[in-house]
């Protein structure tokens, strides 16, 4: 295996860690299950590609615009979540994904099915780099910043508000949490982070195609969150690493690798539905015996 190949995989993993963490804000923190995260990934990638190719703007502006624009779009696309809950929201977010892909595909400005190619290599501090160690470091920094942001959110009142609407919207309202407001926040923050990941992706690959951000990609991102352990910070990270790495490690069985990959997902959901490192999972309890879920629960009163 060449170093370049490894670095490419690791860069992808870093980008997908950000994506999985971004979706975790929506699904894990706020309890809003979305099958449309790839749409935000795509909006970030296309924003960056359009600004770089059509307007020749530098990478930093492309990147920041991708975050801001995708965040704003996320606020608006979060509006359906105010009207629909649970399984209906899953369908609505799926629909959003299809609509966004169609726009990329059928609007000429976005290059149609041929996508947008020849995105210039990013330039930072006067150095131009595509791929390699610097790009891996850049993506890792973004993943770390995302992790830091998620950690910080979980410590704030808004993090607690997300938990309350995830638990029960009526009970949340009874302590003064407007679930509408916090769902929109969750969509906005989640989309903004995914947008940044999209920008990094676009400048890394150098081209964007609509189908990259299709519905199956949303499933892949949600799988990472659930596989790793929804609602925790470690879960989406480990989920992104394992699910990005497995198909690569299974390359030697070529055509059968996705069969095995699928089987792995099924087995996980059957035997460890909390995810590999989720609260209450077998592995997490082995690693972390003081897990509050179990050890700190006082003895029930015997009646």
């Amino acid at each position: 295996m060449s170093t370049g190949y490894l670095l490419t995989i690791f860069t992808f993993i870093a980008i997908y860690i950000s994506l999985a963490l971004s979706l975790n804000i929506l699904v894990g923190f706020a309890g809003q299950i979305s099958l449309g995260q790839a749409a935000f990934f795509g909006i970030g990638a296309y924003t960056s590609a359009v600004l770089a190719i059509r307007y020749s703007l530098p990478f930093t502006i492309d990147f920041i615009s991708a975050i801001l624009i995708t965040g704003f779009v996320g606020l608006f696309l979060g509006l359906p979540s105010l009207r629909v809950r649970h399984d209906f929201l899953v369908l609505a977010t799926m629909g959003i994904n299809f609509v966004v892909i169609s726009v990329f595909k059928y609007v000429d400005f976005f290059g149609g099915a041929m996508g947008l190619v020849n995105i210039p290599a990013p330039v930072l501090f006067g150095i131009s780099f595509r791929g390699g160690v610097p790009y891996f470091i850049l993506s890792s920094i973004y993943a770390l910043l995302t992790l830091g942001l998620c950690w910080y959110i979980s410590k704030t009142w808004s993090g607690l508000a997300f938990q309350t609407i995830r638990s029960d919207e009526d009970a949340a309202a009874s302590v003064g949490v407007s679930s509408a407001r916090y769902k929109i926040y969750a969509f906005g923050i989640s989309a903004a982070i995914a947008g940044g990941a999209g920008s990094l992706y676009a400048h890394f690959i150098g081209s964007v195609f609509p189908d990259t951000f299709a519905f199956v990609e949303s499933i892949a991102i949600l799988s990472m969150v659930i596989f790793g352990g929804v609602g925790t910070l470690r879960g989406p990270i480990i989920g992104a690493i394992i699910l990005r790495l497995t198909p690569e490690l299974l390359r030697f069985i070529s055509d059968y690798r996705f069969t095995l990959y699928g089987a792995l997902l099924v087995l996980m959901m059957l035997f460890q539905p909390m995810g590999i490192l989720g609260n209450g999972s077998w592995l997490w309890q082995k690693l972390h015996p003081n897990n509050r879920d179990v050890a700190n629960t006082p003895q029930m009163e015997v009646k």
Partner: peptide
């Protein structure tokens, strides 16, 4: 709030004045 501890349930109530404000974020 089933996903929170008893203490966090109470803290969630203490947060009532913050949720409507930007500082709550």
């Amino acid at each position: 709030f089933a996903n929170l501890t008893v203490e966090e349930n109470v803290l969630a109530g203490i947060g009532m004045p913050y949720y409507a404000q930007f500082r709550g974020l």
